[in-house]
Design a protein around this nucleic acid. Structure first.
Lengths: 194, 194, 194, 194
DNA sequence: TATGAATGAGCGTTCATTCAT
DNA sequence: TATGAATGAACGCTCATTCAT
């Protein structure tokens, strides 16, 4: 009964997102302007704000979708055999997350939601990321004295740290991979008997 | 000859900082506006920017000073004997860093300087923090298979993670301390022989 | 055959008006939003405009009805014997008309219809008001050198003036009654022989 | 000492007003857009709102200035000898006030100020109008049983009434002058001995 | 009649930062 | 150094009204 209306809504929403993606492809996330998006979608400005609370909500969706597609790839990849393998598998995602300073900032900002109702796409991907990595860690040649879930959270923490260093003049002489490797080795590998 | 001028300069700078601290005490860091600061200091807006490169430079100073005073306390505290001790020692600092979402964001943003010349007060405190923690970790009953410096960086990474969770509706049911403990246990303690 | 349809129509219309009155009772005329009204009536926005040409048409109805009920009271009151009596009789109406700045504005705007076909409830009440007052003035101890109709129009003009003063910081130290009395004395009473 | 700065301010303000007057001359008051004004003045939008609280504040100034110049003409005109003379003298002002429905609405809206500090140009002209007319009425062949100030307020009330009728479909078959004459005759002339 | 997504055009805001004096 | 008016570029908002279904 209310299907036709909803389809119209979904169509408009899709056009907005398509237009936004076109702008991003052209000029990047930081350069996206709401005005361009509505112009590209051929809708009124008011329509934009009927679909998205604000520009951040759109960004959450766009960036969240990309992270999700990277997670799809990651999930379908073979379980990493060692730390280097793990890093290599994660790299496409980490590279995307640091492709623009603006993107990294948005991700940090939106990865936590002030209220449960406001949990957005990016925050959801963080949950998923933890699950995917935990599943790996349970299988691989990694330390077993703590839960895979905790290990996965640590991978996340060190990834953030390494990504942050990429934007830091003092430490960006090393690549993201090089920064990340010692952290994850020390975190994931069983300690040699002392 | 130029002594009086310098004194006036220092005086103006001091008045700006005092005014800023008054605003912060009244309304918090997030609510601080340059306009309020210059009004409180009784100078013109332009004068503010003659003393501080930008608003962030002031924030760096204000927040950096507070972090430094927490580090003073931390440094003068006895070396922690275990993880709980370590957390307890660090907590006043971590609580301050998460007193406002805005403060946490500023710290993340300024903790890595975008350029080497721009290393500010907050970035300095992070170096100092790393040294203090590394010294502790070298002395305590912690794992020795990796360098204390790397361990300290990990403490930092997990602290950031735990602080971020404080602002996340999905995970803030636990206290910062409760979130941090399992991370640091797993990171710092020698693994039991498996 | 079309009875049930008409009844449904009338029912919807009544529900819209009830909902509108509820909003007005809660928050006043100025705060009334079409959205609230349709929400309260449990119908869609478009339905509102199937029943009322525009929001003003609803306002015309709501405010016109209230004015009419004040006119009922006025009409059933005894013919005023003097100016003070006249003012006292009119006051409930004038107080309502100035209960909100917005109400006064709407009344001014709709009291003269832009087109003859658009004569609405408020415009009708003004005609009625003029007739009622003219009838009084023909009977009372008032000047007789001009027609009662003209006198009534003057009462209207001075009432508007006095009401406007109520919204003016320069003149609202006096009550509406106090502002109105000298006007109507000078307008309605026979001049003393000079 | 602070003269040069103020002159710059005044210059910018003058450019804004000039640009606004140009737009009005071109397209009328109703068609004035803030964007056009700032474009015409060659200043930023922020500057506009630094000079005027909102668009209404500019309108108050523009319209108030015009009314004032009409009042200048009126003031320098010879004292009217009778009602027709009076109407003829006032007509340029009344014609301007009703040149656009929008202008009349703005005048009504801004003629009263909610607070004394907010009294604007239009509200001031109303005071002046009363004074100018009162001075005339004291001199002319008009009724003397009430104060000239009261008589002037009545002229104002009837002028508003007559202007409102101009926008009213039911009564605009008569000219403003024709509508006004009977009112003012009855209001201003000594009553014939009955 | 009923629906409700879409419209739309302009206003006001924001506030750190700049620059001519 | 000090001044403070001016900048600027989007964003977000408003909300009555329309129109295709």
């Amino acid at each position: 009964m209310n299907k036709p209306v909803q389809q119209r809504t979904l169509k408009t929403r899709a056009r907005l997102i398509d237009a936004a993606n076109a702008v991003v492809a052209e000029a990047g996330f930081d350069a996206l302007r709401v005005e361009q998006v509505v112009a590209g979608a051929g809708v009124a400005k008011g329509t934009f704000f009927a679909h998205f609370k604000d520009k951040d909500a759109l960004m959450d969706l766009l960036i969240g979708a990309r992270i999700d597609s990277y997670l799809d790839q990651i999930e379908s990849a073979p379980t990493p055999r060692d730390v280097d393998d793990l890093i290599e598998t994660l790299m496409p995602l980490l590279n995307f997350m640091t492709c623009e300073r603006y993107v990294f900032d948005v991700i940090l900002r939106l990865s936590g939601a002030a209220a449960v109702e406001q949990i957005g796409a990016i925050a959801m991907t963080f949950e998923r990321h933890a699950q995917v990595v935990a599943k790996w860690l349970a299988d691989g040649p990694f330390r077993t004295d703590v839960s895979p879930e905790l290990l996965a959270e640590g991978v996340h923490a060190f990834s953030i740290q390494a990504m942050a260093l990429k934007f830091c003049a003092l430490h960006n002489s090393q690549t993201l991979t090089e920064n990340l490797r010692p952290y994850l080795r020390a975190w994931l590998m069983p300690q040699p008997a002392s």
